[in-house]
Nucleic acid binder design. Structure first.
Lengths: 347, 347
DNA sequence: TTGTAGGCGTTATCAA
DNA sequence: TTGATAACGCCTACAA
C-alpha cells in the first residue's frame, strides 16, 4: 500500500523544497521552465492530487453544500437532490446529504455536524417535527455564523434565508380547475393538516378553484390527514370512509399515495375512472405514471427546484459583500400532466 | 455575523494558552479544576465545537464514508442509502453521496474527488457503463492507496474488496417456484441482458426453478432487455409483443417497471390477474405495493444491505492490521411478499 | 499546572 | 529562481 502522494514527498524525491513544488504545479512563472516541467512530469506520473481537506482548512471554505432532508426514500426529494447534484457539479461544488428522518433532534444534530467545517452552506427541507415544535435555533445559529441557508419545499417564516417553493397553491388550483372544466362538480380533497405548509397551501388552491367557478365549498368534502409522506393504516381507513360516504365525481389529493388508495377504494366500489370519478393528485412520480389507470398529476419539477436552490446558494457563497443581498423566495412552476384518470377536455 | 469560535479565540479571551484550552476541553487531569471549569463554561456558553476539517487533517481520517451509486431517483438505492446512513450514524461516521448517473467518467471523477482526503473508504454500486467497459483502474487506485472499498448489488470480480450481494439467484428462484407451486406451467421472464450481473443471476434463478420442477426451459419465453433501471419506449414495445405473442400463465420480471407494463398489457388483453396470469417481480417497492392488483414481489431488504455494507466498511477502517483480513462476500436474504398478483397456495 | 513547539498538507509572503 | 516561514485549527509530546 503506497501512501498518498503529497507535496512534501515530491519535494523530497526531487530534492527541491515544498514551496517550489507547489509553485511549479500551479504554473508559477517564478519557477524555471526546467524545474517546472520536471516536477509536473513527476506529479503526473504518480498521479498527484492535492488534498481537499488541507485546502479546505487553508482556504476556510470547503466548496461543499450540505443538504438536509426529511427522508430519502421519497421520489420527490430524490429528484430535488438530483437537481442539486447537477448544479453543484456544474459549478464545482460537492454535496453532502444528511437525513433528519422527520425528527427534530436529528435535524439539529446534522446541522451542527455539517456546520463544523464540513460545508459552506445549507439547503434544507424542514422536518415535520421541527415544524410542530417551531424551534429554529439551529437554523439561526448557522446563519449567525455566516453560513447561508436555502430552504425548499417545507419552509417556515421568520428565518433569514432564501427560499425555493413549489407554487403549491397555484398547482392545486390548476389540478382542481382541470377537473371542473372536464365536468366534475362534486370534488373532494384528501389533504394534510394545516400545520404542514404544503398541505395547507394545496387546500387553499383547491378552495380557490372552487370559488373561481362558483362552486360552494363543503367541509365534508375535505379530508385532512396527519401525514403527507406516507400512508398509515389509520389514513387508509379514513380514506375508505371518505370515499365511500361521499358520492364524489372528482377527487384531488395532495400526494400520490392518497390518490392510489382512493383509486383502490373506488375500484372496489365498482366506480369507473374517469367516467364516474376523476382523480388528480399532486406530485408526478412513479405511481402516477404507472398506475392503471395512470393518474393525471400536478408535476413539481423537483430537479428544477434542486438546481434553483443550489444556484441561489452558490451565488450567495460566491458573493463577497455578504450582507447586502436581500432574502428572496423563488417559485417553481408546476405543470399538469394529463393522463387516464381525468376526462378529455372538449375544445 | 460572528466568526466561528476556535481554541485560539477562547485562549485569547481567557488569557491562557491554546493547549491549555484544548486539554481542559478534553478533561485532561493536567489542568487544574478551576481553569478547566472556567474554560468549559466559556466553551459551553459560546457553543464551541471543534472544526471537523482541522481534525480530519490532523488525524488523517475523516470519519466519512463515500457512497457512489448509479442514480438516486431509484427506490432500491434510496433504501440502501437509508441503511448506510443509519449504521454510519450509530457508529459515528458521516456519509457523502455522489451519483455516477450510470456513466464511467462521472464514476471515476467522483472517486478521485472523494479520495482526495474527503473520505476514508467507499461503498459503491458500479455503473452500467463501467461494467461494459470493464475498466476498474479507479477502484484499484483507491484500494492501492489504502482506502477500503465495499461493493454492493452491482459488483464485479477481480477487485480487492468486500462485497454485499442480494442473493439474486435464490430470490428469483423463490419467486418462480412460488408461481409453479400455485399452478403456473408456462412462465415467461422479462429480464436484462447478461452483462448486467443482477439480471443474469435472476435469469439463472428462473431457470433453476423450472429445472427443479422438471419444466423445460424455452428461449422464446425469455425476454432480455438492455436496461434494468427504467422503462424505455423500445422496452415497452418489446414487452407488449412478448406478452401478446406468448400465451403465458405466469410472468416473472427482474424489476417493478417490467411487471407494471406487463400488467398493463395483460389488462388490455382482457386477462385476469391472477386467475389467468400470475405476476411476480423482483424488487419490493412502491409500485408493487400500490398497484391494482398489488404485485407479489421478491423483497431485497435494501436497508439491511446498506447497514451491512457500512458495517463491513467501518470494521475494515477500524482494524489496525489492515492487510490481514481477507475479502469476503456477504449475502442478504430475500423474502417473498405475497400480494394480489399470485394465487393463494393450497396448504 | 501551564505553555511551547511541531506537524497534518497546502498556499502566500518574504528572504536569499 | 528557489527556499524558509507562517498560517488555517487542532492535538500532543515535552519543556518550563
Amino acid at each position: 500500500m503506497k501512501r498518498k502522494l503529497t507535496l512534501k514527498l515530491i519535494a523530497k524525491e526531487l530534492g527541491v523544497s515544498i514551496s517550489t513544488v507547489s509553485k511549479a504545479l500551479r504554473d508559477s512563472p517564478e519557477i524555471s521552465e526546467e524545474t517546472r516541467e520536471k516536477i509536473k512530469a513527476y506529479a503526473k506520473l504518480y498521479n498527484y492530487k492535492p488534498n481537499n481537506i488541507a485546502l479546505s482548512l487553508k482556504n476556510r471554505r470547503t466548496n461543499t453544500i450540505g443538504v438536509i432532508i426529511p427522508q430519502i426514500v421519497h421520489h420527490f426529494f430524490t429528484t430535488v437532490i438530483s437537481g442539486i447534484e447537477q448544479e453543484a457539479r456544474d459549478r464545482n461544488y460537492n454535496v453532502i446529504i444528511c437525513l433528519s428522518n422527520n425528527g427534530f433532534d436529528k435535524e439539529v444534530e446534522n446541522m451542527e455536524l455539517l456546520a463544523n467545517g464540513s460545508t459552506d452552506g445549507f439547503i434544507l427541507s424542514i422536518s415535520k417535527e421541527t415544524m410542530l415544535k417551531e424551534d429554529y435555533h439551529h437554523l439561526n445559529e448557522v446563519i449567525e455564523q455566516g453560513m447561508p441557508v436555502v430552504m425548499f419545499d417545507r419552509v417556515v417564516e421568520g428565518i433569514s434565508c432564501d427560499r425555493v417553493l413549489i407554487d403549491d397553491k397555484a398547482g392545486a388550483k390548476k389540478g382542481v380547475s382541470h377537473m371542473i372544466r372536464t365536468g366534475c362538480r362534486k370534488i373532494g380533497i384528501i389533504t394534510s393538516e394545516d400545520y404542514i405548509s404544503v398541505g395547507r397551501l394545496r387546500t387553499e388552491g383547491y378552495l380557490d378553484a372552487l370559488d373561481d367557478y362558483g362552486i360552494a365549498a363543503n367541509d365534508n368534502l375535505i379530508l385532512k390527514l396527519d401525514n403527507i409522506d406516507d400512508l398509515t393504516e389509520e389514513s387508509k381507513k379514513r380514506i375508505e370512509d371518505f370515499v365511500t360516504k361521499n358520492d364524489l365525481d372528482g377527487i384531488f389529493t395532495v400526494n400520490e399515495f392518497f390518490a392510489v388508495h382512493a383509486t383502490r377504494v373506488l375500484t372496489k366500489l365498482g366506480k369507473r375512472i374517469p367516467e364516474d370519478v376523476s382523480i388528480v393528485c399532486f406530485t408526478d412520480g412513479q405511481l402516477s405514471e404507472n398506475m392503471i389507470p395512470s393518474l393525471t398529476a400536478v408535476s413539481q419539477h423537483g430537479e428544477e427546484m434542486g438546481r434553483k436552490a443550489a444556484s441561489i446558494l452558490i451565488e450567495k457563497l460566491e458573493r463577497e459583500d455578504s450582507e447586502t443581498a436581500p432574502y428572496d423566495t423563488a417559485y417553481i412552476d408546476t405543470s399538469l400532466v394529463e393522463r387516464e384518470s381525468t376526462r378529455k377536455l372538449n375544445r
